[in-house]
């Protein structure tokens, strides 16, 4: 399949990038931290490889020559929800799927700062 032809509108052939060079392990680790995900060394390396082609795809957008502003769909203030309370859901239902519960509260290990 010929995809090379496909993205002729991008400004330049896409070579990535992140402060020069490819995305390095440290940067992948930073993204993992933002994502709250943990990866083994192996996984990290395989991700770094995959990211290269993912970012080639993303860079087509970055390099696309196109103008225009973002148009947002909007609603008139008058059509917003009126401030009338409704019955809340029963607490048992809300906590049904929680892994740990005490005194109608969801429990997590003690938070240290």
């Amino acid at each position: 399949m010929q995809f090379k032809l496909l993205f002729h509108r991008s400004k330049k052939p896409v070579v990535f990038y992140f402060k020069g060079g490819e995305m390095d392990k440290k940067e992948i680790e930073h993204l993992a931290e933002l994502s709250k995900l943990e990866f083994s060394e192996e996984e990290l390396e395989s991700f770094a490889g995959e990211f290269k082609s993912l970012l080639e795809l993303a860079d087509i957008v970055k390099n696309a020559e196109i103008g225009g502003e973002i148009s947002y769909k909007s609603v008139d203030m008058n059509n917003l929800r009126e401030d009338e309370p409704k019955e809340s859901a029963p607490v048992e239902t809300l906590l049904e799927n929680a892994p740990q519960v005490k005194n109608d509260c969801i429990v997590v290990p003690r938070i240290m700062e």
């Binding site: 509260c105 969801i106 429990v107 997590v108 003690r110 938070i111």
Partner: peptide, 10 residues
Amino acid sequence: IHQGNISMID
């Protein structure tokens, strides 16, 4: 709400 070795969320 922090209590012993757990934190509870309301």
